[in-house]
């Protein structure tokens, strides 16, 4: 009997993960809230002027590391917690102010896009991927205790009270950080609240999704999400008509990058701590993780699998 070489495959059985283009660094030049906008164009320009030396430093550092660094810049506008003005007015002001300060904004994103981008519920996709940091002694016997909508980096203080009729009264215990060496820095982050049927994601939660987008680590059934599109001309009057991420400079390097650098005012420090507590518990698809590491290796770059190691900040005070 002769044997034949047979190949047989089923489309529904395959896992395909799209590749997306990657820069070396994604630099966030700022984050705009209504208050910042209402402070006026001059205030915006001064803010960009403070950011500029940090952005230039990022370029310098990377020029020393790779031959031709691909560095893209981005800017996030809050249209989730408060709605103000219109895209054409706000973006017009932003571009004018950044240009005056000598900065180039490659991509502009709106915060609502971190919750749902082009119909894909990103915040929910990320929420489903949370693998809570297990306190010592966790062996899988029971699901980790959770407070609906909250995520912490350790064990909460017991709530006290009595479980059963005539049962023992629980004594107070301090909360404890799981990775504590000697002392704890325990943080409990509110990820969302429900208002009626609507889930309101918290600012650090959406900021965590924002970081994952900038790192190019999110997929929906293997497909890329929140893909940047060229800025429509003219810009729409309604924020909802604006794509999640728009590309302002046609020749800009790719939006997503191996690493991110955010230049933020120090008032965002607690938010970013919370972002890291959340991101430290998001399980990235192994295939996507592998893909990024392999592509880095192709460029002779060692990309850490631990995503927190790929996220950097410059946090000047508010001078």
């Amino acid at each position: 009997m002769t044997s034949a070489h047979v190949t047989f495959g089923e489309v529904a059985a395959e896992r395909r993960i799209s590749n997306i283009p990657l820069s070396h660094v994604s630099v966030e030049l700022g984050h705009l809230y209504m208050d910042d906008f209402e402070a006026g164009r001059d205030a915006l320009r001064r803010q960009f002027e403070r950011v500029r030396p940090w952005a230039e430093t990022v370029t310098q550092i990377n020029e020393g590391r790779v031959r031709r660094p691909r560095i893209s810049t981005c800017f996030l506008i809050d249209d989730y917690f408060t709605r103000f003005s219109t895209p054409s007015v706000v973006i017009g002001d932003l571009l004018a102010a950044s240009e005056a300060a000598g900065l180039r904004i490659d991509y502009i994103a709106r915060e609502s896009g971190c919750a749902v981008a082009d119909g894909v519920p990103l915040a929910e996709l990320v929420h489903a991927r949370l693998v809570p940091d297990p306190p010592p002694g966790t062996n899988g016997s029971r699901p980790p205790p959770h407070e609906s909508g909250w995520l912490s980096n350790g064990e909460r203080s017991p709530s006290g009270g009595v479980d059963e009729a005539m049962g023992q009264v629980a004594a107070w215990l301090p909360p404890r950080e799981n990775a504590a060496r000697h002392h704890s820095i325990f943080l409990d982050v509110e990820m969302w609240t429900d208002e009626g049927d609507r889930r309101i994601w918290s600012c650090p939660y959406l900021a965590a999704v924002w970081q994952l987008l900038r790192l190019g680590l999110l997929r929906d059934d293997g497909r890329p999400v929140a893909v940047p599109v060229p800025a429509p001309d003219p810009l729409p009057d309604d924020w909802d008509d604006l794509p999640a991420i728009i590309q302002m400079v046609p020749s800009a390097p790719p939006f997503a990058a191996y690493t991110t650098m955010s230049v933020l005012s120090s008032r965002f420090l607690p938010v970013e701590h919370a972002v890291r507590v959340i991101l430290g518990q998001v399980s990235i698809s192994a295939a996507v993780l592998e893909q990024t590491v392999r592509r880095g290796a192709d460029e002779n770059l060692e990309i850490p699998r631990d995503i927190l190691k790929r996220i950097g900040y410059a946090i000047p005070g508010e001078i």
Binding site: G140, S141, R142, P145, E164
Partner: peptide, 10 residues
């Protein structure tokens, strides 16, 4: 059942 329903065991 007490332990189970109160989430102490799987």
């Amino acid at each position: 059942l007490h332990s189970y329903l109160q989430g102490k065991i799987a």
